[in-house]
Amino acid sequence: MHTMIEFEVPEFLSIKKYPEKIYYKGNLDLLNRQKVSIIGSRKPNQYTQQMTHHLASELSRIGICIVSGGAMGVDAIAHRGAGSDSTIVVLPCGIDLHYPAVNKSLLENIENNGLSMSQFELSFQATNWSFVVRNSLVVALGEVLIVTQADINSGSMRSVEFALEMGKKIYVLPHRIGDSEGTNRLLSDGKAEPIYDIDTFVGKFGMVHSKIDKNDPFVLFCATQPVYEEAVVKFGDRVFEAELAGIIEVKNGRINVV
């Protein structure tokens, strides 16, 4: 089902031209959550991959919704780190398309459990300018913008310009000289703050709201310390996502609720 949002999204008022139409699939309640935007390179190095996933997972664990653009690389890692029920994807194409195709299963999980949004008509194919428009919505939705890796002349750096225009605070991962020259430039110019410690950074947000519903059949089942394989048979991907989100942990083949 492809539906249009019928109410005003306050965060989009910071965009120069409020979107004429916003199509969506999924859970609109995520718009009411505290949100953080995470973007970056389509070809992140291993350090960036690990830190992006850890950062998104820890923010999600305290109840923050992660916003990104569904692209390869950092975007996809951020969505996965958050878990499909705690993330918003903004598409550069029609809401009925899955772009890029390599992320089809990820995008389907988000529209089924999280929230997928687009301001483009159905069947609209992604173009160079639609990526820029998409990026402005991604930046607008987040309370802050985190760029985990970016080259100087990348789309991520164009998104940084949007964030500066909107008065958003920008955070980046510290990188070695020669790596991620775009984010290193932001640091040297005083336009971004570094995230030196993920726990300390996440602690700035406090406990937004617990993702654990004590009456959730999944949580009740996990509280019985079931065997991991048994839980996977019963709940499928939910087990993997809960583990990434820090809701459960696996010890000696059995599940414990954290």
Rank of each mutant, 00 (worst) to 15 (best):
S136T: 10
V132F: 11
V233G: 00
K16I: 12
P174D: 07
V138L: 05
V36L: 11
R134E: 10
V147S: 02
Y23M: 01
I247F: 06
F124N: 00
R254G: 00
F235L: 00
C222L: 06
V172Q: 02
M51C: 04
N45T: 12
H79P: 00
N153K: 14
K191M: 13
L59H: 08
S154M: 03
P174F: 09
K234Q: 14
A242F: 15
S118W: 13
D151L: 10
Q125I: 15
L107A: 02
P174H: 09
G81H: 08
Q46R: 10
F205C: 08
F201I: 08
K17I: 15
L31F: 14
G236F: 04
L137T: 08
N112R: 15
K25F: 01
S116A: 14
T87G: 01
A245P: 02
G70K: 04
A192W: 10
M1W: 11
H2G: 03
V257K: 07
G167P: 06
R176Q: 11
A223P: 00
L187T: 13
G94Y: 03
D237M: 12
Q149F: 06
G63T: 10
S84I: 04
F235I: 03
N256A: 10
K43E: 13
T224M: 05
N45L: 07
G178S: 04
V227Y: 10
